[in-house]
């Protein structure tokens, strides 16, 4: 007789939804955003993750977005608009060396966060772009400094990013209203 440990699925704190965005210029932005699937156990997460293409295999202009069920993967969503994101901008070379590993660590990090405010994490996004891919963790309240800094430190540690290499956190408000090509960081770690 097998032990329950072997057949009981391990629950996640939240139900999550994985979205896929494919840049079809003939369609609107929201039409290009497709819900792939939802899950609320560790086993179902991996079943989905192992089933889909890795980010490095996606075409330019494509995104994966993983958000808590009920939160749309866009700044405008009520649970995103007051928040921001820890943003990793990757070099072109990193697409083949780091992108898939970073994305997998980013996805599994949300099950490991020891913050006092895990509720802060809304989701994670990977953008595949010709100039360099981007991975980000989105949180819901850019004023919640302590939780944001804890998430950023754990993120850097998980991705084994050197201490002197800084990653920045930008509020969606700043990102959406930026004039130049870069957005100022609210926090960095």
């Amino acid at each position: 007789v097998t032990s329950p440990e072997q057949y009981i699925k391990h629950p996640l704190q939240h139900r999550w939804a994985l979205w896929y965005f494919k840049n079809d210029k003939s369609k609107s932005w929201t039409e290009n955003l497709r819900l792939i699937s939802k899950f609320d156990t560790v086993e179902d997460f991996w079943a989905l993750y192992n089933h889909i293409q890795q980010p490095s295999k996606l075409g330019f202009g494509c995104d994966y977005c993983l958000f808590k069920d009920g939160i749309k993967p866009m700044w405008e969503d009520d649970r995103n608009k007051l928040g921001g994101r820890w943003l990793m901008t990757l070099s072109k070379q990193q697409r083949h060396n780091d992108l898939d590993r970073y994305w997998m660590e980013t996805l599994s990090l949300r099950c490991q966060l020891h913050t006092d405010c895990p509720e802060d994490v809304c989701g994670a996004v990977v953008n595949v772009r010709p100039k360099g891919d981007k991975i980000s963790i989105w949180t819901g309240n850019c004023q919640n400094r302590d939780a944001i800094m804890t998430i950023g430190q754990q993120y850097k540690e998980r991705l084994s990013i050197p201490i002197k290499t800084l990653i920045g956190y930008q509020s969606h408000d700043d990102t959406s209203s930026k004039s130049g090509s870069t957005t100022k960081n609210m926090y960095s770690v």
Binding site: H10, P11, L12, Q13, V42, E43, W46, Y49, N50, S108, C111, Q112, L113, H114, P118, R158
Partner: peptide, 18 residues
């Protein structure tokens, strides 16, 4: 309330289990 957290090794082990 209770918070469900997993450690990294457990998560990665689950990835490869059938």
């Amino acid at each position: 309330g209770t918070r469900i957290i997993y450690d990294r090794k457990f998560l990665l082990d689950c990835r490869s289990s059938p």
